[in-house]
Design a protein around this nucleic acid. Sequence first.
DNA 1: GTGAAAGCGCTAACAA
DNA 2: TTGTTAGCGCTTTCAC
Lengths: 375, 375
Amino acid sequence: LPSNVAKQTGEVNVAEQPVWQSFAQLRCTIVAVSSRATIRDVAALAGVHPATVSRALDPRRSGRISAATAERVEAAARQLGYAPDPIARTLRSQRDSTVGVLVPDLRNPVFPPIVAGIEDRLSSGGYTALIANTGNDLERERTQLEVFRRRRCDGYIVATATVDDASVTELVGGPDPVVLVNRRLDGVAAVSVGSDDRQGIRLVLEHLVGLGHRHIAHLTGPENLSVVRVRAEAFRAEAARFGLPAETSIVVHCSALDTPSALDPARELLARHPALSAVVAGNDLIALGCYVAADAAGRSCPADLSVVGYNDMPLVEWWRPALTTVRIAQYEIGREAASLLLARMSSQDPSEAKHVVMPVELVVRASTAPPSTGT
Amino acid sequence: LPSNVAKQTGEVNVAEQPVWQSFAQLRCTIVAVSSRATIRDVAALAGVHPATVSRALDPRRSGRISAATAERVEAAARQLGYAPDPIARTLRSQRDSTVGVLVPDLRNPVFPPIVAGIEDRLSSGGYTALIANTGNDLERERTQLEVFRRRRCDGYIVATATVDDASVTELVGGPDPVVLVNRRLDGVAAVSVGSDDRQGIRLVLEHLVGLGHRHIAHLTGPENLSVVRVRAEAFRAEAARFGLPAETSIVVHCSALDTPSALDPARELLARHPALSAVVAGNDLIALGCYVAADAAGRSCPADLSVVGYNDMPLVEWWRPALTTVRIAQYEIGREAASLLLARMSSQDPSEAKHVVMPVELVVRASTAPPSTGT
DNA sequence: GTGAAAGCGCTAACAA
DNA sequence: TTGTTAGCGCTTTCAC
């Protein structure tokens, strides 16, 4: 057991040991790695008090310790393969090198790349990401948040917020740093990362109008998502700017940003507006819903109906037809969110709220074409 | 602060309180929920020792406590909104209601549904899943596993194992329950969940041979994945069973089960075997690599080359052409793995190793057709 | 069946 | 700069 081993070699000065002790220490290292050394073992081996070990190993206090001691402690720690127990450390210090990440739906292919960006950046900053999937369930979001808080996460990245989300609003008001991703709260200042939605919609309409479309609808998600609101707003504004008559620029909301929720609204949209020649979808999954509805209505895309997605999630270039969509910088959004959080966690001062806007790009593929002249 | 509040209302018997105290208690509840009540607050309010509270609230010890006490303690706990601190509990008991889940690549769309199944089942069993993404990086797997172990996870679900994976082998040999998903270790008995790969490959070859194909290749991932080995083995065996000449049944391994790794091998395969009329891919992402390579070689799928995938991950029915593939029960595999783990975690006795096989199904879409007669 | 005492491994406060 | 003391909140002995 490491404790015993450490006691035996207790006060020995590492630098002055005869060669024949090296092997004993080597064995000791092996033992210590497979079971686990405590801070007391390290203290005993280095001949100092446990508290000194704690200080010596704390990067924040690197100045407040004598170089000689620091070196001895580090040598002992390395030798024993010591790493502080995160549970004990958290219990005592009430902080944890952990970030809670809340994702609405991991099965939506946009999110895995965002999560990958978050994980990569966070782990390079010495933090571990705890990922929780809420499945768009507000109650589950609340529960997961509670779990995170009980575990004393040092910060949070939230991609699930609705505009009036009570739990998230409370979280943002609390002492721990929070970064919102792709979502914002109504009337609550916060740190957030998003994309240039206005520009995305502008590019889409420019493209469609350029192709000759005049009768265009926006089929999107629930209005309690900031991203939905902003894009719908932009759609109306840009449609007006391009001189499209208001009565031919329809906005329809689905209950969620996924394919099943889009099916009925899409069917109804096509049935009620036979003159419609293009649909701008709130995201790629809703665009897929439009494909299905168009099929069912006997209209082929893009000949009889142009469809544009949003996000450019992985593999949509392989859909049939390949989806024209707005590319958002998924991985980079994740990295940026993590960077902002790391910055806020390291500097004590609560830097003011800000919204980082990432650039977008229109990717034209095969789901858009000039409107059919027959209609 | 809950401590003060609890002390003030200390010895009061809840059942006998006059009405005017109810409001005070209501306030007390609200306070306690927003900050946090400790076990001492509950003990004070119930008029018992903290240890008694701990016992009363422990479902395993439900018999060893008097009904009256149990009731008083529960009332007090409810009133204060008390929930044990998971960190302190873990430090003391060396166990944690947490399961570490290791996934090789969340960006591969097969995994999110599996993870969803795991999460759903686990949370219904009172456990929280900690998800870690290794990105097929062995070193990162080791690191994440170490993080999980330091946090005293009660169990592990591992979907990242290679056949000779040292960290996972050690984990399986350890005291904590482990369930392997879609992967197995060489020569190490373990609990695992997988699919009926032999049957899947049989269905594929039956389909292709039925269409008239005689010259078929299997393009798959690295041989250190059990699932790759088993399917390759099945491919050879079934090809022989269907009377295909061995020299026309080629197996080619890519460095990973993803699209980029498949591109070069796929191109080379098509170049060296012009007579090849069908490819059975090791998974859907490799099938996509075949699409790309076929495009580049000027061969169109399915007219000039049939391609079959494996997994039936979400949205492949929308690829161009829609992918014929073997459907595995993704969500159910996750649920089953979690169920097995829950069973092993609740019963102390280490139930013996077993391998649960889930059924598969061939989904015929548009990427397969009879071989072109011209070739 | 319940209380008292001890301590999981660490770090914050204070003292020297 | 370092040691001492105390305790984070809980559960697990061991008495009674």
